[in-house]
Simulated scan of single mutants.
Amino acid sequence: MQVLVPGHRYVAHNFEDKNGHGQTIQFIHKEPKGNPTQLETVSDGTTNEELLSILIDRMAFLQNAFPCRENAIVITKLEESLMWLNKRTADRLKRNVEGKQIA
């Protein structure tokens, strides 16, 4: 992994690539706009939740092909991580602070 923009853009190295090429993963990047609590999108991208969903799908595929205890545990932990992120978002929506720079 190479960090291009901390917290927002990365290069994920391809497993068998001998030339050091990779794939860029871009997360949504927001920064304060005028009012310090308001955020505006600087560059669009994916979310932690989306990336976890991809990993869950991949691990489920691998578990189906090559079942083992470790894969099952990984799936459980990824699903738990996704659950906590979704809970955080639901709580922020309930408090009307989602998308704002407020704890």
Rank of each mutant, 00 (worst) to 15 (best):
residue 49 E to P: 02
residue 28 I to Q: 01
residue 74 V to Q: 00
residue 26 Q to P: 00
residue 56 I to F: 02
residue 26 Q to T: 10
residue 57 D to F: 06
residue 55 L to Q: 07
residue 75 I to N: 02
residue 3 V to C: 13
residue 63 Q to C: 03
residue 72 A to V: 10
residue 12 A to I: 15
residue 81 S to Y: 05
residue 73 I to N: 09
residue 64 N to S: 07
residue 8 H to M: 04
residue 46 T to F: 00
residue 28 I to D: 01
residue 17 D to K: 13
residue 33 K to V: 10
residue 55 L to S: 12
residue 60 A to H: 05
residue 79 E to L: 02
residue 103 A to Q: 14
residue 14 N to E: 15
residue 10 Y to K: 07
residue 87 K to P: 03
residue 23 Q to L: 08
residue 72 A to Q: 08
residue 28 I to L: 05
residue 10 Y to S: 04
residue 68 C to D: 13
residue 67 P to C: 12
residue 83 M to E: 01
residue 53 S to N: 00
residue 95 R to W: 01
residue 95 R to P: 01
residue 28 I to W: 04
residue 36 P to A: 12
residue 21 H to R: 14
residue 40 E to G: 14
residue 67 P to E: 11
residue 63 Q to P: 03
residue 86 N to Q: 13
residue 9 R to F: 03
residue 56 I to E: 00
residue 85 L to V: 06
residue 37 T to F: 08
residue 28 I to M: 01
residue 56 I to Q: 03
residue 40 E to S: 12
residue 17 D to W: 00
residue 37 T to C: 06
residue 52 L to A: 03
residue 3 V to T: 15
residue 1 M to P: 08
residue 86 N to V: 03
residue 90 A to H: 06
residue 50 E to W: 00
residue 62 L to W: 08
residue 63 Q to N: 14
residue 26 Q to D: 07
residue 17 D to E: 11
residue 22 G to W: 08
residue 14 N to C: 13
residue 66 F to V: 12
residue 79 E to M: 02
residue 26 Q to C: 06
residue 89 T to E: 01
residue 48 N to L: 09
residue 91 D to E: 14
residue 3 V to A: 10
residue 91 D to Q: 08
residue 59 M to I: 06
residue 68 C to Q: 02
residue 2 Q to Y: 02
residue 1 M to R: 10
residue 59 M to N: 02
residue 39 L to Y: 04
residue 73 I to L: 13
residue 63 Q to K: 10
residue 55 L to D: 03
residue 2 Q to A: 13
residue 96 N to D: 13
residue 29 H to A: 03
residue 58 R to D: 12
residue 30 K to Q: 12
residue 100 K to M: 08
residue 32 P to Y: 11
residue 78 L to W: 02
residue 37 T to W: 09
residue 35 N to D: 15
residue 86 N to K: 14
residue 5 V to T: 15
residue 71 N to R: 09
residue 51 L to Q: 11
residue 5 V to A: 14
residue 100 K to Y: 04
residue 34 G to H: 10
residue 16 E to F: 11
residue 87 K to D: 06
residue 28 I to Y: 00
residue 11 V to C: 07
residue 12 A to S: 12
residue 42 V to K: 08
residue 31 E to P: 00
residue 48 N to E: 09
residue 51 L to D: 06
residue 32 P to N: 12
residue 65 A to G: 10
residue 30 K to R: 14
residue 3 V to E: 15
residue 85 L to H: 01
residue 82 L to I: 01
residue 33 K to S: 14
residue 44 D to M: 03
residue 8 H to Q: 06
residue 9 R to K: 12
residue 54 I to L: 02
residue 87 K to Y: 06
residue 47 T to E: 08
residue 88 R to T: 05
residue 66 F to M: 07
residue 14 N to I: 12
residue 25 I to V: 14
residue 7 G to M: 08
residue 14 N to Y: 12
residue 63 Q to I: 05
residue 20 G to W: 05
residue 36 P to N: 10
residue 21 H to K: 13
residue 25 I to Q: 05
residue 10 Y to G: 07
residue 24 T to Q: 11
residue 81 S to E: 05
